[in-house]
Amino acid sequence: MRTVFIIAKREFRLFFVSPAAYSVSVMIFLILGGIFFINIYFGLRGGQIAPDGRMVISPLVTILLFATPAITMRLLADEQRMGTIELLLTSPVRIWELVVGKWLGATGFMMLILGVTWIYPIIIHRMTNPGIDQGVLIAAYLGLVFMISAMLAIGTFISSLFNNPIPAFFITLTLMLFLWIIGGLGSGSGTASEIASNLSFVAHYYDNLYRGVIDLGDLVYYMSLTIISLFLGTQVLESRRWR
């Protein structure tokens, strides 16, 4: 387990010298800041600002769809491109430790960004009398933590498949878009639609967590996606030994 944290720490630090990570975070903060300010400004003009701390959360979820593949694309693909993966595979590091460490480092970085976005609800909270509903906010952010973990794990898995970050980015994006829109197939009725809507990445977030209700099923869904993806990533790297 210690190895996991060492790898995670190294990976976390690497983000602070990565131009991609900086562009992603600047993009996130610029878009969120813009949306937040427009909401406040025009809300004032219209005389109505919703006393809701989740103003930036739905745009954030959409941005994450594009941001997480950019964060994860080079995690394992770069190691394979540069050949450093051979070094890692022959070192006493176990493969799952490597995969989980890489994922944990990326998760840590995204959590830092997520932590900064807390500033928008705080501003709304200070302007609201008697304050916003903290419970809803906590559930919404808890959901984001689980959702981001799952997205990053998927990205890590896809990154293990490629020697080049660019296809890793696009395949991750495609896969996430697929999980995004699959809920739309569930608008009908019947078992298949039920399954489709239960696979949906967004429905699991917006149906309960976003409303302020923590549903065990949603958390288990995201955790399952995370663990399965990390497991598959480990299997792919493992396969380098006999391919």
Binding site: G135, N198, V213, D215, L216, V220, S224
Partner: peptide, 20 residues
Amino acid sequence: INYIVYDNPKQWDLTEDQEY
């Protein structure tokens, strides 16, 4: 596991007014 949890739902209502 997901199916079992789906069949036996468990929820916590965090809203201040216990809306749900």
